[in-house]
Design a binder for these strands. Structure first.
Length: 806
RNA sequence: GCUGGAGUGGCGGAAUUGGUAUACGCGCCAGUCUUAGGAACUGGUACCGCAAGGUUUGGGGGUUCGAGUCCCCCCUCCAGCACCA
């Protein structure tokens, strides 16, 4: 018989599936829907890498399985096409991003089709197309109208290399998310989305979703809810006061000084009264020069300067304490000022030691060697002494409230989302500035605000769009006078915050998606993509969904019911694959040599989907052999006689066990074990005297989601005319799984000594008798005192013996 | 430091509610067929031991008839956050 030639088979079926429109989601179907989504790719010039293949194979398997199970599956694909790399490429080569992006998309499509991914190509979207970004701009206006988009001057993260502002989430650890350069703080007027309004919902609703625990934890940490007290301290001899925020109001009697962030707005006011003015000014200057990285990660040594002549009054003790500036206090968290309790806070302790400030313990347990930060019994705290921390916090907060000098306060580390980018390749922010009318949003009817082409992309720190006269110089939509257009573009994460709605209704030119279509398809049932988006895309998208819910566009509040992350695929040396290391494996070559089916199987067989895995090109031969054997098995199909069918009882049991195993494993995304179960099945089928075509077809169906081409080919070769991918998923027969005989292990004192085969329904006494009759058991039991026998039906018998004192 | 996760053969990794640890695959060893094979097939392969047997799931305790799995302590590794008061 012919040999397994993956090249001709794979091409043949890919073309057929495409012309048949096999994987298009059906708008009119009455079947229950499933929305299976991948984090859509950025179409980079490098093309698909092994991580993409892993991601899309997993969702492809799941989608194909669900279709066979009888679901109406939507499994769309699109392009997250705006972004820095295309622009940087344009700067280097002079090729317009629009052109290079489209070339890259073509390449991606060819690669994805070559891997047999069952995407619905009729719903393809491209965030850089005007038909799409028109609605991205519409979302901006929606947020603007509802007070959720605002412009303000603020210290923002600024990447000197990318020459643009960045959101907090994109400047983690003080490094630019894109280029890993150090981020500095710059005073700029920028647009923000008020994601902080949704901080509580974003935390609380995490309980509603089925997400990886680490991702949920990361979002919780990032949002960083903390409950405490804000209170004000009057400044001695003035009518001004300093507000401070603390979660440990129970330690307030131990406050020995106050620290303000160097950028605290009050500093300027106080400066006139400060005696060491020039010293203070010098400190402020030095600390603003520091990068975020220097202030945080590297700032092990705390620095500060006292404001001589300034004293703040502790409202509880009425005693004055000195006031410092210190850049270990962050200007943009809480009130930008803290009460310092060195006895019970590590940072304050360190600072107090360095500047020789007094340390007053107010929680029992402080021994002077280090800060005692645990809760405990209050001491030296006036009327609050003797209380436990928790009680004291309540009582003190009430006291402050009654004195009208403080209140309970919840703070978040989450900041509003800075969305202005001083870059070219993004959706223009739809706002116009008029000298008469001020800030005027572009009217909806004028959308999209088209991205101009007549600009130089080189980033200068000012948006390139400003160079385009036709774009920049406009008339005010309100008064018709000369005005200028906002020239910044939006963060690309804005584009990807709503794309999963668009897939439900990708061609709609009246709305971002119709309510009807959204209700039909959303929310996403299964969302798969990299874990690096845990606090970026996944949080922004949740924010958008919550806004739509609140404004009654939709009736659910979480977009992604289940999220799964594929683990990163490393090079065989355990390092990241990268061009500079020259250790990148190109999937094209593997498809060419081994076939798409083999590559798909191999990536899934490498290990648990969510684990990080090192690539191994040597072991791909295993899955290839498996497929070869599946191919050859066709030769073994014979017209089976009734007699032989009877002999095949054993195979029947194994087959049905495999159906159950593969089904369960696909449901739980445990593809590596599903494949191993199929390998075991084929081992058995090869050993069996005869394989019926009925058995073989069931095997092919199990294999179909994993290796769609070869299973389709073999399915057709055994005489089927309709696609295997439209055939129903096999159902396991519980009665066939029950075996008539079982092997049970015999233990003596917990040690395995022998096994016996008994009827599945054998009584305990029978098993016991049989076990004791075994020589290998008798050897350990004879002459001993049998103290106890534990029988677990179908599994094990444990005979507990003791030494007989003879 | 905090949060989340993981430590099982030469390697990737399996193990329902605690119930035969090392499935499946790679590699390796032996054999068959071949002019030859880096092809295919058959058998073997946790470790020590000739064997009987003993020992093994990062280390140490514990619960249990029985622990990779549950509890306590410790070590190591990975990922994320990192002066958030």
């Amino acid at each position: 018989m012919d040999s397994y030639d993956h090249k001709s088979i794979e091409k043949k079926w890919q073309d057929k599936w495409e012309s048949d429109g096999m994987y298009c989601a059906d708008e009119n179907s009455t079947k229950p829907k499933k929305y299976v989504l991948d984090m859509f790719p950025y179409p980079s010039g490098e093309g698909l890498h092994l991580g993409h293949v892993e991601n899309y194979t997993a969702t492809c398997i799941y989608s194909r399985y669900l279709r066979m199970k009888g679901f109406n599956v939507m499994h769309p694909i699109g392009w997250d096409a705006f972004g820095l790399p295309a622009e940087n490429y344009a700067i280097k080569t002079g090729i317009h991003p629009d052109q290079s992006t489209h070339q890259n998309i073509k390449n991606f499509i060819a690669q994805m089709k070559g891997l047999g991914f069952s995407s619905d190509w009729t719903r393809e979207i491209d965030t850089s197309s005007p038909e799409y970004y028109r609605w991205t701009q519409w979302f901006f206006l929606l947020l603007y109208k509802n007070g959720l988009a605002y412009k303000k001057k603020a210290k923002v993260n600024w990447c000197e290399s990318c020459k643009t502002g960045l959101a907090n989430e994109q400047a983690q650890g003080g490094l630019c998310e894109r280029c890993k350069n150090t981020v500095i703080q710059k005073d700029l007027e920028q647009w923000f989305f008020k994601i902080t309004d949704y901080a509580d919902d974003l935390i609380n609703d995490l309980d509603k979703v089925d997400w990886p625990s680490s991702t949920v934890a990361q979002q919780r940490n990032w949002i960083g809810r903390s409950e405490g007290v804000e209170f004000s301290m009057s400044i001695d001899g003035t009518d001004t006061s300093i507000a401070v925020y603390t979660t440990r109001i129970d330690t307030v009697f131990g406050m020995t000084y106050v620290v303000l962030a160097p950028e605290h707005p009050l500093v300027e006011t106080l400066l006139s009264a400060v005696k060491n003015k020039s010293e203070v000014e010098g400190y402020i200057q030095a600390s603003t020069k520091k990068t975020e990285l220097e202030r945080t990660e590297l700032a092990k040594e705390k620095t500060g300067v006292v404001l001589e002549g300034i004293l703040a009054i502790n409202p509880f003790t009425k005693k004055p304490v000195p006031v410092f500036l210190g850049d270990y206090v962050l200007g943009n968290y809480g009130t930008g000022a803290v009460m310092a309790v060195p006895a019970h806070d590590e940072r304050d302790f360190e600072f107090a030691k360095k500047y020789n400030l007094s340390i007053v313990p107010v929680i029992d347990g402080f021994d002077g060697s280090e800060a005692y930060i645990k809760d405990g019994t209050l001491i030296n705290s006036g009327e609050f002494s003797g209380m436990l921390s928790e009680e004291a916090r309540e009582k003190m907060a009430s006291w402050l409230l009654s004195e009208e000098s403080g209140f309970k306060k919840v703070n978040y580390r989450l900041r509003d989302w800075l969305i202005s980018r001083q870059r070219y390749w993004g959706a223009p922010i739809p706002v116009i500035y008029c000298t008469m009318c001020g800030e005027v949003p572009v009217p909806e009817k004028d959308l999209p605000v088209l991205l101009p082409k007549d600009v130089d992309f080189h980033p200068t720190g000012e948006s390139p769009l400003r160079q385009s006269k036709s774009f920049h110089e406009v008339l005010c939509p309100k008064c018709g006078m000369k005005a200028t257009r906002e020239s910044d573009t939006m963060d690309t994460f804005v584009c990807s915050s709503w794309y999963y709605f668009r897939f439900a209704d990708p061609k709609n030119d009246k709305e971002f998606a119709s309510r009807e279509k959204i209700e039909k398809w959303l929310p996403v049932d299964m969302y798969m993509g990299g874990a690096e988006h845990a606090v970026l895309h996944l949080m922004y998208a949740r924010f958008f969904t919550k806004v739509l819910k609140k404004l009654d566009y939709i009736d659910f509040d979480e977009p992604f019911l289940k999220v799964c992350h594929q683990g990163m695929i490393l090079a065989s040396d355990g390092r990241k694959m990268s061009k500079s290391l020259g250790n990148v494996i190109n999937p094209n070559e593997l498809v060419e040599k081994f076939g798409a089916d083999t590559l798909r199987l191999h990536e899934m067989f490498l290990g648990p989907l969510e684990d990080m895995k090192a690539w191994n090109s040597d072991t791909i031969i295993g899955p290839r052999r498996f497929l070869e054997r599946a191919w050859k098995l066709k030769n073994k199909l014979q017209q089976t006689t009734d007699n032989e069918q009877q002999e095949n009882q054993k195979l029947d049991t194994i087959l049905h066990k495999t159906i159950k195993k593969v089904t369960d494993d696909i449901e739980s995304f445990s593809f590596n074990t599903a494949i191993s179960a199929m390998m075991m099945l084929i081992n058995e089928m090869e050993k069996a005297p005869v394989v019926s075509s009925e058995h073989y077809e069931i095997f092919l169906k199990l294999l179909a989601p994993f290796a769609p081409h070869i299973s389709e080919e073999l399915w057709s070769a055994v005489g089927n005319t309709e696609s295997i991918h439209l055939s129903p998923w096999p159902v396991f027969d519980g009665t066939k799984i029950v075996e008539s005989e079982v092997t049970i292990a015999i233990q003596v004192n917990g040690k395995m000594r022998d096994t016996i085969v008994v009827p599945a329904d054998a009584e305990e006494d029978v098993i016991k008798g049989m076990a004791l009759a075994r020589p290998a058991v008798a050897k350990w039991v004879d002459g001993k005192d049998i103290k106890k026998v534990i029988v677990v039906k179908g599994k094990i018998i444990n005979i507990v013996v003791g030494e007989t004192p003879l």
